[in-house]
Nucleic acid binder design. Sequence first.
DNA 1: CTGAAAGCGCTAACAA
DNA 2: TTGTTAGCGCTTTCAG
Lengths: 329, 329
Amino acid sequence: MNISEFAVYAGVSKSAVSRYFNDGYLSDDKRELIEKAIAETGYSPGISARTSKNRVTKLVGVIIPKLSSESISRVVEGISEALSAEGYELLLVNTFNDCRKEISSLELFRNNRVDGVILLGTVFTDLHLSVLGKMHVPVVIAGQNVKGFNCVCHNDEGAAYALTKLMLEKGRKKPAMIGVTKDDRSAGLSRWNGFRRAVDEAGLDVPARFMETSRFDMDSGYEKAKFMLSGGHLPDCIFCATDSIAMGALLYCREAGIDVPKDMMIASVGDSKLGRAAFIPLTTAHLHYKTEGRDAAEMLLMALKRSDTVARTLELDYEIIERLSTETV
Amino acid sequence: MNISEFAVYAGVSKSAVSRYFNDGYLSDDKRELIEKAIAETGYSPGISARTSKNRVTKLVGVIIPKLSSESISRVVEGISEALSAEGYELLLVNTFNDCRKEISSLELFRNNRVDGVILLGTVFTDLHLSVLGKMHVPVVIAGQNVKGFNCVCHNDEGAAYALTKLMLEKGRKKPAMIGVTKDDRSAGLSRWNGFRRAVDEAGLDVPARFMETSRFDMDSGYEKAKFMLSGGHLPDCIFCATDSIAMGALLYCREAGIDVPKDMMIASVGDSKLGRAAFIPLTTAHLHYKTEGRDAAEMLLMALKRSDTVARTLELDYEIIERLSTETV
DNA sequence: CTGAAAGCGCTAACAA
DNA sequence: TTGTTAGCGCTTTCAG
């Protein structure tokens, strides 16, 4: 049923119906008539036609690299919460870690389809920046701090610093790190920097063998730990960029008969279920992923209503959670 | 820029432009002209206006109870993969386990907005069935077998049966189960039934104390295990409806000094990362969640192009993965 | 406050 | 193969 048919059914004009669903500049009589007809027919106006007039989709595009990650799930959970509170819906694009799909989605979103975009990026190339610069809808970047754009991010450097320092203050002298690619400025570069700062402040030297770059998964963490811990000279603590990596390292230690935390402390960022339920529960930095999602959505919604063009950066703090993996025994 | 302006710019008619973006019934000259103009202007047609004509949104609504679950993430991952392969996009609605939101989303989707719906339901009430019956777009239900509707689901009963039987065949005589509410016909009822069938076939009797109903999370699993294992008379194996619950039970066993698997075997359904990385790795039934998502999406896409109205049910088999938690020592 | 009528950006039927 | 023209279902003037 379309608006014309419905208007006839209800015994009012098309305009009255339209007004009922929009401003509501309407007498009570008509309103009643319309409400009665709705109850009887279940009519609701088609969104697409409306959109083609007033250019508002009530849709927010959310671009993510993958879904099989606890942290990303949590961010999206936060986004969906804030969005649905304001009557917006979520158009989810999974890029499967494919940079080109990230770009093409942004381009798809540039003109129409969505009112705004939230981008959970990992690596930002020049191409990204160029495409982002040409967007005609507001964009918020979540999880990364990219100058000149709206961002909601974490204090990654601080978290890495605090965790490393925590282990050093417990007397460890031979720190190691298993990190991820520095192309990822947050989980990569910033956490390397935090580690480095703590180590430098303590006046320690870290041999190259004690710094490994891993992928994001547990298996890769396991391999890197195996490689690092197979030599003669061993570190006495490892800071891992993510919980999954730490979990892999922990598994290797168990296998190799290395006592955690006595001979090897381990700490990492993320506070995942995995780390909480591990054989040796992991000391970790809790990042407020869900809050990040909620805040990113709220920032976008704000950008949608006021239409100033000032870029804002919101940084969320972390929380250190000490568990068995760094306990002094 | 709209189609008229663009047509003028390119030096062709509106129809030529429209055709370019649709069928493509077009000479090479015009095509070239248009391509050149696109390169210069970045024009792309607004989707909303198109939709208001041909009533196709290229959007699929996906309704989920929550995102903070490994299994659900995997299903959605599969859906997004299949959908994007066919040029469809994913409108995600998170109901936060709120039944009313589930209903209202279905109603929202009934008329317009999306071409089809995939529902990851848990509990199906009469209201659900009534609303589902009134949908004007195709619907596929994932993870549940609801008669009369398109479904992609698992052999939950079989998985539960196989896991329970596996433990009984290893000589265990006092089986227990920690399940979830039977309102959930898949993770609840079916798994209870599978357990029951294996136990009956073995001619064993299960006291009421050995059957607990838990929530879906680890903490609840812990509590139920604690309650069950605090009495004098203990079971010698526990089948848990989900990995999270089993993980809770495992944690309690460690705390209580109960030796897994020697004094207590544990098995559960789900094959989550958690169970794989656990202190005592969990024997589990792998359910093909990602495949479920992919198949559900493909079933929907099929329903979209052929327009028969036959309801189909696709059942996916499970795979038993034996790990330490059920090993005979 | 109301209804008629014009128009949103696009697609599709039509005649050429 | 093309351009003209008439819609799609809705919103928004504009007189009244």
